[in-house]
Design a protein around this nucleic acid. Structure first.
Lengths: 115, 115
DNA sequence: AAACATTATCGTAATATTGCAATATTATAA
DNA sequence: TTATAATATTGCAATATTACGATAATGTTT
């Protein structure tokens, strides 16, 4: 007879710092090729686009809508309703946060003998 | 009667570029607070550590071992066997890649009226 | 008002992830 | 050689994620 923990399958966030959870939430949101493709597209067209994404990314409309929600919840993109379309664009500040976080790590690694 | 696709639940990687998949794999690996905490720890101690991680992160040994594997598979860390311990340390080049990727996005966003 | 266009939500199926006990593996120490 | 120590693997339960059809919601057009 085995006893299993109540939070089997869930992430144990309570043990980590706010900062660590913040970075994890944002990077997790980037962690899907469709979402990376959406970001690339938003950067490329340099414009606020709505349903155009549908033509460029070969996934069904509800799936893309879901991915957009993940990106928006992580503050990676902003979305503004414009009539019956939605204007989506990149949220620069979150990318700056990521750039600084990763840049800081890259420039602070001290090389050890073993690696 | 509903018909469901064979790849229900799986990520449709074939539609995206190698670059997009690469970024997604790496960021996905960062997308867990325990793994962010492991990276923070490796940076802080500036040394190659093995089982010390167990004392600092409140998760069971198999769970940590699994997280380390995820980080290693994404080339975020390197692991070298040293006797009966393993030397884990940060893989600088992957963090440079991320730093550049996000830095490039942050510095190339052109602000639109709508957002 | 009715039709149309755009986006979001719901429901559901399939797979993936998380976490840990138990156990295996491998190297060092006694 | 037999512990002991450190790490990996296996197996499994619980939850999360992904994808999409159907449908709802909302604004625009005719």
């Amino acid at each position: 007879m085995q006893y299993y923990n109540e939070d089997m399958g869930t992430t144990k966030t309570e043990h980590f710092t706010e900062r660590q959870s913040e970075i994890a939430v944002i990077t997790k949101a980037m962690g899907h090729p469709a979402r990376v493709a959406i970001i690339d597209l938003l950067l490329k067209v340099n414009a606020c686009i709505g349903n155009d994404i549908l033509e460029k990314i070969p996934l069904a409309q509800p799936t893309i809508s879901q991915h957009l929600k993940v990106l928006k919840d992580a503050n990676l993109i902003k979305g503004t309703i414009e009539g019956n379309t939605v204007c989506y664009c990149i949220n620069e500040s979150t990318f700056e946060l990521l750039s600084k976080y990763f840049g800081n790590i890259a420039s602070n690694v001290i090389h050890q003998d073993c690696c």
